[in-house]
Amino acid sequence: MKPRLRDLGDTALTLELGDRVDVALNARVIAARDALGMLPGITDVVPTYCSLTVHYDPAILSRDELAENLCRAAELTLFQGTSVGTLAARWQIPVLFGGEHGPDLATVARATGRSESSVVETLCGAELAVFMIGFMPGFPYLGELPEGLRLPRRTTPRSDVPPHSVAIAGAQAAIYPWPSPGGWHLLGQTPLRMFDLDQPERPALLAAGDTVRFAPIGKHEFADLAAAVDAGELPRAKFLAT
């Protein structure tokens, strides 16, 4: 599909690179974000699955100048391919699976014809892309899940998903930063904060373009990490994969 520009009102412009959920397409969106850079008058640059939206102040930046820059950024992504930019981080996120922390693990195992440990192993074996952040502050949409774990959403959504829950639905995974209603299957919980106002430079742990690998941990490690997070003694860099 040819890149298209669409106005989202008089203060935002969307560059659309495609119309499906796809890792390679999303990587081009991220590359376009990195190629665009910050022009005076741009207030927010929001990458999503297959589009890049720029919110701008029309009193400072004209729509046409922004459009030109977005088109140039789109062209650059064609030449540079989809190499992951230098801004991307690779995260290893510790997760306590099953039990009260992941109340749907048994159901997912049954529905996919696997053992619980095979579900965990398959999920942790995949490197997932952070497609975008949305729904709530710090909420990452991750994908794509291995084929064998893909299930429709729960027929009855929960009204109270506990914060830090790791959940799957369809070809995607997510981590809930806050308590919230939700219809995804809950497999486990991470002790890490997905959104932390004590880190004002980048309050969300994850950004679009990063990658995530889940790592299973036990009860004691979960408790130790949770205590260290609460005490502010756990630098995020500790969870960057080397």
Partner: peptide
């Protein structure tokens, strides 16, 4: 349905 993308006040 569309693939989720950015929205803004006024949409």
């Amino acid at each position: 349905d569309i693939v989720s993308e950015a929205v803004t006040p006024g949409a």
